[in-house]
């Protein structure tokens, strides 16, 4: 049942895309990204996207420009929509927990295999802090991309270069700071890369 539904959805999407202007498509994608970065519920996001899709399609058919629908500033409009939606804290916490646990699991698993499972408080707190900084920077990156009109190349640069490389140096500098002050087991003293 679900598979059929998703297939139908895909078909419909393909059909729609055939007569849908680039501008409208880009706007809807940006709106989705913006609302996601604002931590809104994904079902609700899809709801409003679908509704706007209908509207934009019909407006295009009768020859109205997108500005007639969303006004002169897409950013302002996105904010307006966002203000009416509640933040989905549950999902947010899930994401954060997954990412932090995910990054933890690498170190834990490796150390488990080595047979030395001991971490300092600094290590644990640092790990969580870096995880949170990483998540926040990614979400800020999302929000920035969705509200400014950039070329695909620039968007990729922002998304993949800036936020995702940030943990690297952070992890590095972190291991540099603590290792002289704390006497840690040899196995975990240089293990801070992903």
């Amino acid at each position: 049942m679900n598979r059929i539904q998703s297939k139908q959805k895909e078909m419909r999407r393909l059909n729609k895309e055939r007569n849908f202007s680039e501008k409208s498509k880009a706007f809807l994608e940006n709106l989705r990204l913006y609302l996601f970065s604002k931590g809104k519920n994904s079902a609700e996001i899809e709801d409003i996207i679908e509704e706007l899709e209908v509207h934009l399609l019909e407006a295009e058919k009768s020859g109205k420009p997108i500005e007639k629908i969303i006004g002169k500033s897409p950013k302002e409009y996105m904010e307006m929509v966002s203000d009416e939606m509640a933040i989905d804290y549950r999902t947010w916490i899930k994401y954060i927990a997954f990412i932090i646990l995910g990054s933890f699991s690498f170190t834990i698993f490796r150390d488990l295999l080595k047979g030395s499972l001991s971490y300092s408080v600094l290590e644990i707190v640092g790990h969580i802090a870096i995880g949170i900084i990483f998540i926040i920077s990614v979400f800020i990156g999302f929000k920035y991309i969705s509200t400014t009109n950039q070329s695909i190349k620039k968007q990729g640069l922002i998304l993949f270069a800036t936020p995702s490389k940030r943990p690297g140096p952070l992890f590095f500098s972190f291991s540099f700071v603590y290792s002289p002050t704390f006497n840690l087991p040899a196995s975990s003293s240089h293990g801070f890369d992903f």
């Binding site: 629908i69 969303i70 409009y77 939606m85």
Partner: peptide
């Protein structure tokens, strides 16, 4: 008015 403004209003009215 920009037509899209009705949607945030509808969302609130639904809430």
């Amino acid at each position: 008015f920009s037509e899209g403004t009705i949607y945030p209003l509808l969302m609130r009215m639904q809430k």
